[in-house]
């Protein structure tokens, strides 16, 4: 039973992948739906990363799109400028792609560290402002780099991403975050969220854990950016303006902060919703705005706030004879 529980997420994702592919082959799902699913999963990853920062550690970052941009542009630069697919034997391409996505994640993580280190010493919404500013500065800097297309956008990126890759990275993100959140690191993060002063008194180095969470969250955004770049085959700096960051915030809080299930639900639902509302044409965003207000009025904690589907909580091993509560 325990073993099953441990591998349930992996099995679930594998089953999901097989199901989608089967429906795709059977012609029920067209590549339109598959593409929306892929976008949804990428958005889920970014939201999950943001959830670690905002939901679990109690900080307030609103510039996540900047890190997606850093990751996306970095990994696209690797596969397009450094090692273009034309110089590679086909067998090497997936490897280069994998490496490039990780490099994108690492670079975004480094940026996260550099930004988090000075601004997370402070309390309050300062991180919010600094991340917002960072996102805009990154965007205006990218425009000035002609090698990645500047304002014309970065075109000709090989389209390596596919459902399998994205499912793998998505699963990997869930796995990493689940293990992180339910480790002593994660508990330290939650302690910071609940009461920073008390956490500090208990010997938790709050700045360290906040910076760590921020770095990991940014790195995940970077990885998602790498996947996005190779899915679209094109990047434009304006794709990552602060309105995009706001989208991720909305996914997070509509889904429910502090819950991985919530992030996944919020991002998935709200990625699909605007597509479903296409028939409304211009009224689409009007309805979306109203829907958001009503969702929060009736479920202020978000769809799944504070709760978690059971398979996302690892079984906690208790020492022999342990009788205390959770």
């Amino acid at each position: 039973m325990d073993t099953l529980r441990k591998y349930l997420p992996i099995l679930g994702l594998a089953a999901f992948y097989v199901l989608v592919m089967a429906l795709r082959k059977a012609g029920v799902l067209t590549s339109y739906y598959v593409q929306i699913l892929m976008f949804a999963m990428i958005n889920c990853m970014v939201t999950l990363g943001l959830n670690l920062i905002n939901g679990f550690t109690g900080q307030f970052s609103i510039g996540q799109a900047g890190f997606v941009a850093v990751g996306g542009y970095t990994s696209a630069a690797v596969t397009t400028l450094l090692l273009p697919s034309s110089v590679l034997v086909p067998a090497l391409r997936p490897l280069v792609f994998l490496v490039s996505v990780f490099i994108g994640g690492i670079v975004a993580g480094i940026f996260g560290y550099l930004i988090g280190k000075p601004s997370l010493r402070l309390k309050g919404d300062y991180l919010a402002i600094v991340t917002l500013a960072f996102g805009e500065i990154i965007r205006s800097l990218i425009r000035l780099i002609p090698q990645v297309g500047g304002p014309r956008g970065f075109s000709g990126i090989p389209r390596y991403s596919n459902l399998l890759w994205i499912v793998l990275f998505f699963g990997g993100t869930i796995w990493v975050l689940r293990n992180y959140i339910y480790s002593s690191f994660g508990r330290a993060c939650i302690a910071c969220r609940e009461d920073e002063l008390a956490a500090g008194t208990m010997g938790v180095d709050t700045t360290k854990y906040k910076v760590m969470a921020f770095t990991i969250g940014s790195a995940i955004a970077g990885v998602a950016g790498g996947l996005l770049a190779h899915l679209l085959g094109y990047l434009h700096p304006d794709q990552f303006n602060y309105l995009k960051s706001i989208d991720f915030l909305v996914y997070l809080y509509a889904g429910g902060a502090g819950s991985m299930t919530g992030s996944i639900m919020g991002a998935t639902l709200l990625t699909i919703l605007p597509e479903m509302l296409r028939f409304l044409s211009g009224w689409r965003l009007v309805i979306y705005g109203i829907a958001l207000v009503f969702l929060m009025l009736f479920r202020p904690q978000g769809i799944y706030g504070g709760k978690e589907l059971p398979f996302l909580i690892p079984k906690i091993r208790r020492p022999e004879g342990y009788e205390g509560g959770q």
Binding site: S31, Y32, Y33, Q35, I36, L232, L235, R284
Partner: peptide, 21 residues
């Protein structure tokens, strides 16, 4: 007619929808 909000990713969705659906 499909809206693309003048955004690259939404355009990709609009193209996919028109072609596949």
């Amino acid at each position: 007619f499909e809206d693309n909000e003048n955004k690259p990713d939404i355009t990709a969705n609009a193209f996919r929808k028109l072609i596949d659906q």
